[in-house]
Design a protein around this nucleic acid. Structure first.
Lengths: 354, 354
DNA sequence: TGCGATTCTGCAATCGATTGCGATCGAGCT
DNA sequence: AGCTCGATCGCAATCGATTGCAGAATCGCA
């Protein structure tokens, strides 16, 4: 008999079950006077079951508050009904998920998955070893995987993509990637932002962002493209601002003290843009009068600060939509392509004098 | 033989396994020339196993990229290594998880759980039926449950708390609750905010917030307490602003057009506070000159808008800490009490003239 | 009344890892 | 050499639900 009797629940005392709450399908079957198979089929609505029996079982289960173990079902069927979402924080060991960009995208993904009746298993990992992804993938707890941001882990993702299909990635589209990704056309976004500043008369620009992150690197390319094409004496500097707020503030302040006749800033995130504005105003330089500032992402907060922050809009809701849609099509076995979203300009008070 | 052969993975072709990647502990055992039991014990490090054997198995598993099925383990051991986090959105059917408050708290919780090696299963539910909670709890997929905000679902939570122990709730401490909760002293927070406005000379106040949410109701009590005690002719109105941004903006605008000589606003969240400021400025009323505004929560964004928003700080990091700590102590069988965090005043530019 | 055609149900194998208990084997001791 | 003892390892039951196949019950029609 039971060797595993030291394990598991045993919510009830010893006898049967104090509360009368059946712990498994077997007990419910016994109470109903049928076999476990019949209970299973009744509850799941599969197979041929007499309608009367099915209703009886269902009502009984309902009254007794019985719910079959999801895990046992998962083990048997091989499907879990949950999608893993993972945020590799490779480039900033101390960055938290609390970053507003992650949070926003994550929330939209959660909403989309909820629409489809799937749950979301969230893992925040700092990839100190190359196993971080395969560990999750092979754990067998998820039907698919969404990765938010390649960070500097494109290699690892590629190696897993070689054998694991149901996986999509938010981020830059990199040459030679084996996985399918969803992200903005960062280079175009960078160009639009820069051209916006140039068209407003800015000639001494700065790019704020850490180019070791693929997305940022692409935005920087756009920045450089636009500057090159302007060819009217406009110049641009680059300041590798980190994503961690504390360090960023420091870096920005130091830079602004030196760069005295700057007249335009392209920040690679709204957070950085807002920090830049604050630092400028603390130094008595007006925005957008003396310096114009544009951010990237166009999160909700961009609209709600004063002056409202101009930004390059990434439609994260559409992005989440695309990620989830692609993932489910992959799960269904379809072959799908990466998606690039078109970034758009949202010009506001931080660049427009009004 | 296999009746379930239509199910499950079968990553390999038909024969054995093309890639040589063992799919289960059995195959690995065969390759290693030992029994499944030995493999299990080697990998888990349990039981008495010859050190040589254990190392050999481990190395082999590593080389072959084998990882045991988490689900099978879970089924057998009855533990899952994941904590469920659930956000009941009872009072605002259309509100999304994307609310910055939820996301901030969620992120901190995720970080704390990650520290302990636990994963986080996120469910966003709109409680249209009273089963929303028990469905999650009884699914057997989690070792514990964190609920963010009772909303108007205190009854449901109570009824589940009667039989399910490992569960903690973020939110107001309500009389007669059977579960253990973590939250700010909202009444005190409301009082502090109001006294702050009063001390700055405000006499015609308004409270912005939907008092049908328990937390908000308590803040409103604090607001009223302070007003009553002031007893110097200060008056206060209440505007039930919803949490959904679109509706809130509309409601606030309409109110401000009528309430012309308002001089102080206590908003029950930072988002609402920011919307109030924006609406005021659009109407040419200066902040903090003519009207002073204070929010609640003190999220990151409060500090980063202009003028910086004064707020009542809820230490969400400490809150997440407490939630997770309490939960694990409950799981361990300890009896624990609810925790109330002390809210503090963060006075900034939206109330201080500087 | 009789026999095949349907419907329902039940049996038992199965998913993959864990673990109590017993079997095995070699070492150490008399 | 024979025997005891302990360290390892394997057998097989188990967690709980699912499902192919077969047996039982019911029905229809001649």
């Amino acid at each position: 008999m039971g060797q595993g009797e030291t394990l598991a629940k045993k919510k009830g005392s010893g006898d049967e079950n104090s509360s009368g709450r059946p712990q498994n399908i077997q007990e419910l079957a016994q109470i109903a006077g049928v076999s476990a198979a019949t209970v299973s089929r009744s509850l799941a609505g599969t197979g041929k079951i007499a309608p009367a029996t099915r209703e009886r079982i269902r009502k009984l289960a309902d009254e007794l508050g019985f719910r079959p173990s999801t895990m046992a079902r998962n083990l048997r069927t091989g499907r879990t009904g949950t999608i893993g979402v993972i945020v590799p924080l490779g480039h900033e060991k101390t960055q938290h998920i609390s970053d507003p960009f992650f949070m926003t995208l994550l929330a939209h993904i959660a909403d989309r998955l909820a629409d489809r009746g799937y749950d979301l298993l969230l893992s925040r990992v700092v990839p100190h070893d190359p196993e971080w992804l395969s560990r999750q993938v092979d754990s067998g707890r998820v039907d698919g995987m969404i990765i938010i941001g390649q960070s500097n882990q494109s290699d690892v993702i590629n190696s897993v993509a070689r054998y694991y299909r149901p996986m999509v990635v938010w981020g830059a589209e990199l040459p030679g990637q084996l996985y399918c990704s969803v992200g903005s056309d960062n280079r175009l976004g960078g160009r639009i932002a820069t051209e916006h500043l140039l068209s407003l008369g800015c000639r001494r620009l700065a790019f704020f962002g850490d180019a070791s992150v693929p997305e940022v690197e692409q935005r920087l390319s756009g920045f450089r493209d636009a500057l090159r094409e302007a060819s009217d004496g406009a110049v641009g500097a680059t300041l590798p601002v980190h994503f961690v707020p504390e360090r960023a503030v420091e870096e920005i302040s130091g830079f602004l003290d030196l760069a005295e006749n700057l007249d335009g800033i392209f920040a690679t995130s709204d957070s950085i843009g807002m920090m830049a504005i604050q630092a400028l105003i603390e130094r008595g330089r007006s925005v957008p009068g003396e310096v114009k500032v544009i951010g990237f992402d166009d999160l909700d907060i961009a609209r709600r600060v004063l002056p409202p922050l101009s930004s390059i809009k990434q439609d994260l809701e559409a992005g989440a939509d695309a990620l989830v849609d692609l993932l489910f099509r992959k799960i269904a076995g379809e072959a799908v392509d990466s998606v690039q979203l078109e970034p758009t300009l949202a010009a506001r008070g931080s660049t427009l004098s009004d």
